[in-house]
């Protein structure tokens, strides 16, 4: 189970990276990066999972006394929350850049942004 989730995550990362590195259109690149980010988040969450256990919330279903025996690792979930938010932030920033670049250049082709080189 965990291996499947991990493998899916890795696969998403690879697909996302492939898209980001081969697509010319900036917007598509941003989408590809989003896919890769999703893959990473999936990997993060998959690592904490313990088979047969339940979510780390203490209520009638999972009283405090049994928590240690029946809870999955809560830490990766906290990490992934932060990671998602940071990913959103960077995506928004990239979109703003894409917009400005489009306004100034009239094109969304990455290979056209080349004045600064060697």
């Amino acid at each position: 189970m965990e291996h499947i989730a991990l493998a899916t995550g890795f696969l998403l990362i690879l697909i996302g990276l492939y898209g980001a590195l081969t697509q010319r259109d900036i917007l598509r690149m941003i989408v590809a990066f989003t896919i890769a980010n999703t893959g990473v988040n999936l990997v993060l969450v998959a690592v904490g999972y313990i088979r047969g256990r339940s979510a780390p919330i203490i209520n009638d279903n999972l009283p405090a006394a049994e928590a240690t025996a029946r809870m999955i690792d809560p830490l990766p979930q906290a990490l992934v929350l932060t990671a998602i938010v940071i990913g959103v932030g960077i995506t928004a920033l990239m979109l703003a850049y894409a917009y400005k670049l489009y306004i100034l250049r009239g094109s969304l082709d990455i290979s056209k942004i080349k004045e600064l080189k060697w």
Partner: peptide, 13 residues
């Protein structure tokens, strides 16, 4: 602008 965008791409990776 171009430089900033290239930077963001690299930092994503």
């Amino acid at each position: 602008l171009g430089a900033g965008f290239k930077y963001l791409m690299a930092s994503q990776v």
